[in-house]
Design a binder for these strands. Structure first.
Lengths: 198, 198
DNA sequence: TCGGAACTTCACAGATCAGTATAGTCGGGA
DNA sequence: TCCCGACTATACTGATCTGTGAAGTTCCGA
């Protein structure tokens, strides 16, 4: 795996073949893990030659970054839609990630693709790591922003607490088989928020 | 990777070579990931031949299970010590996992070995999965037991909330670089517990 | 003295890994 | 007409993967 390629390619500007490759790779990386899936398999299941895969994405790492970036975008888009729907009240907006969670978790039992990818990418300089870390920090910052706007006490600490609740719910759902982890986390977030409001 | 071998071998009954193999494998599996580490590397770094590795552990999977089991035991032992030290008050005991967390997290920046292993073991029947799932459920049950003894309201839901907080703190610490995630989770757990007490 | 456990040496199997080289096909737009 | 982008076909490199076979050494305890 070479370390080339920015994940520059926007998902919408992909060629038909590239779109299929990315779709197949996303499914396989998420379902089976990154190291467990070979480029030969991805190419074959995409109905494409390996040459095409390398022409479009440069390397397995390039394809991996594209996978993480599109997954990140999908998550932010979903959250964005719900945020737009609930309006301007920051005390309501801060709970939106918890409201979305059941829907997001219902798609699979494989947990969070970013947490999983983190497990397979130990090198801090790996380009995929930046996407992973940015995703978690983005959510924490979203919490922090809304908490501050809501006038909650100690938004720094509360943002980290909400982030932990959120990520932990995903883990508990996938690993401990806790089907109501999202609802429980939602209730806890609500309680912590209420206690922090003036 | 064959699917043989119970992880039967107790860590204390290991031969000198096996002990070295397990120590090296534990470090490498955790630091670099399971699929990323080959048995040749483990054998070489243990100062042992591959033959010995297979004679002692049967397969890479057998070694992996031994790794997970000893890691699980270490975690339970650490918790057990602290639980014994705090005495009988269940309302105090329920917070012990959060008190231990800073010490446990301080050892590394690679997150939770079980969450990481889960990411690399997609097959539910894999013997390693049982160890992983059992570890998380054990912690949830510990929360539940102490909460019930303390007379807290809705121990079912609160146990899941505490589990989520706990696991999420590990994730936030490792991925989002949140150095105070453990302390924040501890404070949140305390607040939720207080609110649930009669 | 003998047996067995722990371990070494080393060669080997068969698969799979990421990635490249070379050559060619096809269709649409300037 | 010509070129270019997208893609196919196929063969190849060199490394690495898990796991095994066969034989030999060393040492300890009964």
């Amino acid at each position: 795996m070479s370390r080339a390629t920015s994940g520059a390619a926007r998902a919408d500007r992909l060629t038909p073949g590239a779109r299929r490759i990315l779709a197949v790779a996303s499914e396989l990386f998420y379902r089976r893990g990154i190291h467990a899936v070979g480029v030969d398999t991805i190419a074959a299941e995409s109905g494409v030659t390996k040459r095409t895969l390398y022409d479009r994405f440069g390397s397995k790492d390039g394809l991996l970054v594209a996978y993480l970036e599109t997954r990140d975008q999908r998550w932010r888009d979903l959250l964005g839609e719900h945020l737009a729907a609930v309006g301007d009240d920051p005390a309501r907006r801060v709970l939106v990630p918890f409201e979305v969670l059941p829907e997001w978790l219902g798609e699979s039992d494989r947990g969070c693709s970013f947490i999983n990818a983190f497990a397979e990418l130990p090198e801090p300089e790996h380009p995929g790591r930046q996407v992973i870390v940015a995703e978690k920090k983005w959510l924490r910052d979203l919490f922090h922003r809304e908490l501050t706007a809501a006038g909650a006490a100690d938004p720094d600490q509360l943002a980290v607490q909400l982030l932990s609740l959120h990520e932990g719910a995903v883990v508990s759902f996938a690993i401990a088989d806790e089907s109501h982890a999202a609802e429980a986390a939602h209730a806890a977030a609500e309680a912590l928020l209420t206690a922090a409001m003036p």
